[in-house]
Design a protein around this nucleic acid. Structure first.
Ligand code: ZN
Ligand code: ZN
Ligand code: ZN
Ligand code: ZN
Lengths: 135, 135
DNA sequence: CTTGACCCTAAAGTCAGCTTAAAGGTTATG
DNA sequence: CATAACCTTTAAGCTGACTTTAGGGTCAAG
């Protein structure tokens, strides 16, 4: 069975060697086998695991959350737990969208109202909008 | 004219004394007058300035961006610059909303698809969705 | 006059998620 | 067999926006 050095794994996965070691320390990647010279040797599916981590990060999961998901996969754990974690993440994402949408609404409105010319003697609607509470 | 100690200002603004000193070091708050004993004494409108900072932070502006906005106000600067800064912020906020919306769409879809029962032997749609690239 | 609540500064610690550096061992190539 | 390109570890540095700590000075109350 073919194995990869940490450098090869880094190249294939697009994750830096030091980051891979960091994930190992943080228990996201299992400690791999070693050669006689104490070099790490990874199985090919380590690439998939790293890509799962990369993608999950892009989805907005923290390393703590990703570790939870990986533990469930490794242990062949309960789907209900996975669904619960994902459900909480969805809830957080929806709240973020709501918050940003409120800000977007006010900011675009005031940007239209602001003439964008001259000095700021008498209140600029943008500055005034920021000075006030969100609602 | 009434002035405030840093503690009184902290209480009125809801910003911790140490954070106020930090803002002074970072040139967001101007250095106030001092008593003989070297205690800071703030004018009443320092409260407004701190609240502007607080609200701008809530709007998603970084301290660097807020400093820019405050400099423009202090210097009675160009409205076009304010509008430019706010326009860039609006653009970033819209991109964040787009990104989060894509994630929301996929995540809610897969949450519906997942039965949420039993072990994860054969692929759970949530895990599979995370394992894949965004699109 | 002494306690406690305030104030001062400078420096270090915090969080996440790494990156960079330091100091060395191993292996492939010329 | 020398040199470069790997690999190893531990430790320190980075970002942003503070908070906490350490070691003092000052001021009002009892
Ligand atoms: Zn809000
Ligand atoms: Zn304006
Ligand atoms: Zn994306
Ligand atoms: Zn599932």
């Amino acid at each position: 069975m073919q194995t990869l050095s940490i450098g090869e794994l880094a190249e294939r996965s697009g994750v830096a060697s030091q980051a891979i070691r960091y994930y190992e320390k943080e228990k996201l990647m299992p400690a791999p086998q070693r050669t006689d010279a104490n070099y790490r040797r990874y199985p090919l599916d380590a690439v998939d695991r790293l890509q799962f981590i990369v993608h999950a990060k892009h989805w907005g999961f923290s390393l703590d959350e990703i570790r939870e998901l990986l533990i469930l996969q490794d242990a062949n754990g309960d789907r209900a737990q996975v669904k619960h974690i994902a459900g909480e993440k969805l809830h957080k994402i929806r709240e973020q969208i709501k918050h940003l949408s409120r800000i977007e609404a006010v900011l675009s409105k005031t940007l239209n109202e602001c003439v964008g010319e001259g000095p700021m003697q008498e209140g600029c609607p943008i500055i005034e909008a920021i000075a006030e509470r969100e609602k």
